[in-house]
Amino acid sequence: MVPAAFLALLALVIWQLVVVAADVPAYIVPSPTEIGQELVAKGPSLVSDLGWTMLEAVTGFLIGSGVAFATAVVFVHVPIVERAAFPWAIVLQTIPIVAIAPLLTIWFGYTLVPKVAIAAIICFFPVLVNTTRGLRSVSSQAMELMRVLSARKASIFWRLRLPSSLSYVFAGLRVAATLSVIGSIVAEFTGADRGIGFVIVQASYRIDTRLMFAAIALSSLGGIVFFHLIGWIERATLRWPEARQHNS
């Protein structure tokens, strides 16, 4: 944590010095102090926009991850469904969300729906792939142990598969958390009346570089907080030693 903060501070100082020394105009690249002033001046309204974006991101994250988890459970238990559906999951993943976002905006207008949907779509794949892998990460001997105890499928799932999968699931969720913020911002670009994406688009029309940088900084902050929130939930949930090694 401390080395990372130090590196950031160093980068900001160099940035400040270069901008001042080379006399770069503020509408090209503003200096960190100017961005800081902008953040203070527009703080309350920016924070409310960020809150809006995070609401979209978190809602999409919950829906996308939830659907992905359920799909993975079905995949692991019914292989034929996996063989039928997984290629289409890859197709969904390869379609650029930038291309679907305007379409969804045409269909659903300036509502929450396109933003939540894009965040959900972008979360789906990493959680699906990681959960499927995690649910399969059961050793053959552990599976034999369950058979010797003539355990039922539900019992195998709750007592063996699910706990084995959790480290993998959380790895997927952490990736999805940062992606969901990007997804909702991209969706805001294509039509919104509030949110960080909306602020960035508006500022770009006015070549208000300072506001753009301030908005970018805040959106990044949102993603970082969300990422660490998931990591914190993981540490609070998975308490056994190996799980701790995984996520440290």
Binding site: Q141, A142, L145, L149, S150, P163, P241, A243
Partner: peptide, 20 residues
Amino acid sequence: ARRDVEFGFVFQDPVLFPWL
């Protein structure tokens, strides 16, 4: 006999569940 849980099996590896 397996369905009646007549067997205790000890594997080559301990096969303990790391979360328990």
